[in-house]
Design a protein around this nucleic acid. Structure first.
Length: 370
DNA sequence: CAGTCGTGGCC
DNA sequence: TGGCCAAGACT
């Protein structure tokens, strides 16, 4: 990597901030420096693009305009507002942190990185972002943009996918930051990373800091940042059960931890959990599913297959393939062993659906029409 | 540390 | 289609 002289550091700061002053994006959370506004936007923006976040942010602020409103929010309503944004533990941690601020800090925001990071869902990056943008503290906010931008500017060869690398970048960025405008500096780096220095289709030729971009000057930009590849999603097979009685459908409450935790969804049974002999017929599989449901939940169901190809949905680490099945439940069934309840079709829009749940419902509707 | 945790967009 | 990416944090 390259080292910069004090003069070059000052020149970089002036060039970057001048560009930012004239070209910064007009975003809803940039109307003021209210820590509540900065915080909500930073959490929503984790692993999520700006254009996706904007409408969610506006709706969120109308419903929960203050940290007190968020602390007192109903979880189901909170999840409905967050519906479709993904990484739902972000929303639950958001409320926990709001309660921490109200209860532990009497509604007054802590201002240090150390204190901020003790709040649920606030890690090194978000603590740095809030401290610098809302409280003008001279601390770095090292996100994916900062890692990519400085890896290129300085030809840093460390793997940005490794957690340890963040500390190295923090120390480097501390020396490059202006003490008087840390929040603007951090945000300028993000705007740069979202435009001229994006991951793909970057345009260094026209970048305001192209003369500071060593990788560009050396013609080796394609080599930066150094980043190891992610593993590909593992296939997982499920049977999805649409158990209904007129307009009521049986929903299962997912466990309190793990993927899509606490959501109401059509019952899913892992394909691996259904044991059948090698040359089992389709009917054998359906009977095995019924036996499984009876032994697990004491529920007597009758299952029939729905035509059409399975519903597929890919997460970061899993690729689900769901075979949809329609089922009826014995009228006199006792649900006390089943972690779920009946939900009327007319109430579906009241509760938060995950994407894969929506896919299952839409596919079922399509099949019924045929 | 390495794995986990969603969704939408792009090529 | 599949792989990668997008203002990370938690276990």
């Amino acid at each position: 990597m390259v080292e910069w002289t004090p003069e070059k550091i000052v020149a970089f700061q002036e060039t970057l901030l001048k560009w930012y002053d004239n070209n910064k994006r007009n975003l809803p959370w940039r109307r003021d420096h209210d820590p509540y506004h900065i915080w909500i936007s930073e959490i929503m923006l984790q692993q999520t693009q700006v254009q996706t976040v904007i409408p969610y942010y506006e709706r969120f602020m109308k419903l929960f305009p203050t940290v007190q409103a968020l602390a007192n929010a109903d979880e189901a309503i909170l999840m409905k507002v967050w519906e479709g944004l993904g990484y739902y533990s972000r929303a639950r941690n958001l409320q926990k942190a709001a309660q921490q601020i109200v209860n532990d800090y009497n509604g007054q925001w802590p201002t240090t990185v150390k204190e901020l990071q003790e709040l649920s869902g606030i890690g090194p990056y978000t603590a740095g972002a809030i401290a610098s943008i809302a409280f003008n503290k001279p601390v770095p906010a090292v996100d994916g943009n900062a890692l990519r931008v400085f890896a290129r500017l300085l030809e840093i060869n460390e793997d940005i996918a490794k957690p340890q690398t963040r500390k190295l970048f923090e120390n480097i960025i501390k020396k490059l930051m202006p003490k008087n405008r840390p929040g603007d500096f951090n945000q300028a780096i993000m705007d740069l990373g979202a435009s001229y220095m994006s991951a793909k289709n970057y345009d260094s030729e026209n970048s305001p800091v192209k003369l500071f971009n060593q990788a560009y000057l050396d013609g080796v930009e394609d080599n930066y940042p150094v980043k190891t590849k992610k593993k590909r999603p593992i296939p997982v097979n499920y049977f999805g059960l649409l158990i209904h009685s007129q307009d009521d459908y049986l929903f299962e409450r997912r466990p309190n931890s793990g993927i899509l935790s606490r959501f109401w969804m059509f019952p899913l049974i892992k394909g691996d959990d259904i044991q059948t002999k090698k040359d089992a017929s389709e009917d054998d599989v359906l009977r095995a599913l019924e036996a499984q449901f009876l032994s697990t939940y004491q529920l007597e169901i009758h299952v029939k297959k729905i035509g059409g190809r399975p519903v597929t949905h890919t997460f970061t680490h899993q690729k689900w393939q769901i075979t949809l099945l329609e089922a009826e439940l014995n009228n006199s069934s006792d649900l006390s062993y089943f972690p779920g309840k009946w939900i009327s079709e007319s109430d579906f829009r009241e509760i938060a659906f995950t994407k894969v749940q929506t896919k299952m419902w839409e596919r079922y509707q399509q099949q019924k029409e045929q």
